[in-house]
Design a binder for these strands. Structure first.
Length: 111
DNA sequence: AAATTGACTCAAC
DNA sequence: TGTTGAGCCAATT
């Protein structure tokens, strides 16, 4: 019961992504010590819809909105990001580096 | 109950 | 230099 599984940890990190910033699946996975579980982070996002997780702020490592088809409506993910001042052209976040938020640098390490 | 698969990533060929 | 495969964990079949 007190045990947190991988998904719960993913949600905790994702919930701390600041407004107007984004991170990547791999960055979250790496922060949690499972650098090669990026796909699981995506899977976790898929199961996060009912929770308070800003899933739209998680994209792939080059800033592409690979998960947009999992949101309701074709452009919901993009619109959510644009609401936060992030420009998206052709599923690609503009100035990705500038908006990128790295949990490994911004959060205390996990032990 | 075992096998497959996913919103990914990186190293090896 | 582009392509291929392995890895991670849980849900789905």
């Amino acid at each position: 019961m007190g045990e947190k599984n991988f998904f719960d940890k993913v949600y905790e990190v994702a919930q701390q992504i600041p407004y107007g910033r984004v991170t990547s699946y791999g960055a979250i996975a790496k922060y949690l010590g499972a650098a090669r579980s990026a796909r699981m982070v995506g899977w976790a996002m898929n199961n996060s819809l009912a929770k308070d997780v800003p899933a739209h702020r998680v994209v792939n490592r080059v800033g592409l909105l690979t998960g947009k088809q999992h949101f309701d409506g074709t452009n919901l993910m993009q619109q959510l990001l644009e609401n936060e001042g992030i420009k998206v052209v052709d599923n690609q976040i503009m100035d990705f580096q500038k908006h990128f938020w790295d949990p490994g640098k911004e959060l205390p390490s996990y032990y």
